[in-house]
Design a binder for these strands. Structure first.
Lengths: 293, 293
DNA sequence: GCCAAATTCGTTCAAATCGTTCATTTTCTA
DNA sequence: TAGAAAATGAACGATTTGAACGAATTTGGC
């Protein structure tokens, strides 16, 4: 429950003096709100932004309700990935939180974390399962855990601005894998889209209804599993025919292999989260320029 | 519809104390009108003006639509429930979050919130969908949203003590509904179990492996949907035969109708989260005493 | 219209924060 | 390395904040 922090709390968390925090606020290094009486209030997301762009470290994150760090910032992403995978397999949520937060504070982008930590971990776990080295419940429990960490990350990024363009999306009918679409939502919000994931197992008719009712600038579809390919192609094409002209369709997912891709249309196919981020960023710049004319 | 606001509502919207708001009204920083009895009423437009003139940002504008909820009456819960349902349908995550956190801070138990707010909301949404008054995407998006709020609640309760008894559980194969098992985990942790949900769609073989590897004191199974009843009964019975003697089996879910219940064994069947909480509490006391002997 | 419950009032008071100044430490530069 | 410049942390009285309390007012149900 730490939406806004006082300079004293921040000072304790960073182990610096209160005077310094106040000075940073006054220099506008840390975006600050004020009460009517003139007391400073610092949003947690603003503090995180500041930390990511300064040399200061969050020495005592527990003051802010954040996971305790090891102190050493995690900069080597490969080692982090394997540690994260192990933590996921063991169901060690503290460790998972810590690794991800450390990486985030070490200025790794969220999209990088999604691709090289989360996605990699689940690929590895899948491989282990094929070899009989991992149980199904470990993978499922890992999904739950990953979801929690993603949600926590979500609270650390600022809310989208009022005029942010809307993006909606999800995983289609028969696809129960909601991790991917949650990651997409997170990454898009990180680059100032007003992204809303509608979850998984979404029938195409309801996707159409959602697009019709909310008129987004962008629509994403995560496809991890397809039950009936012919059916999928037909339903998807119908959706694209109706909205593809006005809404930017971004699709991705391991089930969308080349054969299928050749039979459907889209504005962008994304192999990973970073690709999607690039596409969304481009779109953002384009519509931004457009709105200036 | 919200022409005039009470100081309490404004206080929560601005994340300051009620005292401060009252003081600002008295200092004429916020234009205020008074009822015949001398209670302050703040016009929404006056509040907006105040926010614009001062550097004070409206932290939680959505609160302005909320009823003041510090009481414990059923009335409050009912109103909160319907507001929560509406917010879920509209995908308004700030409002959902706020309603639940308010209730929690007003010392309503988490199990009550689960039953009377979350479960009720999804029942209502299901009914509306049957009448054609709600889209599937609204329900799915609501699930995502509810999950986020549950995860946030989870961060507010303390971590289980080192010596807390272990409970594991989840939703069985073919059951994709992970909200229920997440609620169970949350409530059990709230009463000091070391509860770990393994998510949904868990094959019985992997449930067996999980129990074997972790040796919990309790095991829960959430059953919202059964694909093949005969198959379910057989697999479940096998699981119970193997572990039922050492591990307390708690089962629940709308798919476990009476016919099925009569064909399976368990330590407890729970109609709702509060039942499960009672059962777990009883078990906790019993094992606590046992360990003293 | 009346009653009981819930909410708000007005007040007080301790704790926290403000802005400022100044000595000390760190960093930069010649 | 010496000295200037910048950043830090501690201290101060003045102001603001938040929590508490009994009393008064409002609210919702009958």
């Amino acid at each position: 429950m730490n939406e806004s922090l006082t300079p004293k709390q921040v000072a304790r968390a960073l182990q610096v003096s209160e005077s310094s925090v106040k000075r940073w606020c006054d220099k506008e290094i840390i975006p600050t709100r004020y009460t009517a009486g003139g007391h400073r209030r610092i949003a947690l997301s603003a503090l995180i932004d500041f930390l990511r762009s300064s040399k200061h470290e969050l020495v005592r994150p527990e003051v802010l309700g954040l996971p305790a760090t090891t102190g050493q910032t995690m900069r080597v992403i490969d080692r982090a990935a394997s540690q994260f995978t192990e933590a996921l397999l063991q169901g060690d949520d503290e460790q998972c939180r810590q690794i991800v937060l450390d990486l985030y504070l070490a200025e790794h982008s969220i999209s990088t974390i999604c691709d090289l930590i989360f996605a990699k971990a689940f690929t590895t776990i899948g491989d282990r399962w094929k070899c009989g080295d991992a149980e199904v419940y470990q993978e499922r429990r890992g999904c739950e855990l990953a979801m929690r960490v993603l949600h926590e990350l979500r609270t650390l990024i600022p809310a989208p601005p009022r005029d942010a363009p809307l993006a909606i999306g999800g995983a289609a009918e028969g696809d129960q894998y909601s991790l991917a679409t949650t990651m997409v939502e997170l990454v898009l919000r990180d680059i100032k889209w007003n992204a809303v994931s509608m979850g998984s197992n979404l029938p195409f008719e309801t996707l159409a209804a959602a697009i019709r009712q909310h008129q987004p600038k962008m629509f994403w579809l995560s496809v991890s599993h397809i039950k009936d390919e012919a059916q999928f192609i037909q339903s998807y094409s119908k959706l694209f025919d109706e909205f593809g002209a006005e809404v930017a369709f971004a699709v991705g997912g391991r089930a969308l292999h080349e054969q299928i891709r050749q039979q459907i249309q889209y504005a962008a196919f994304c192999d990973n989260i970073r690709h999607l981020e690039s596409f969304a960023q481009t779109l953002l710049s384009a519509t931004g320029k457009q709105s200036l004319t």
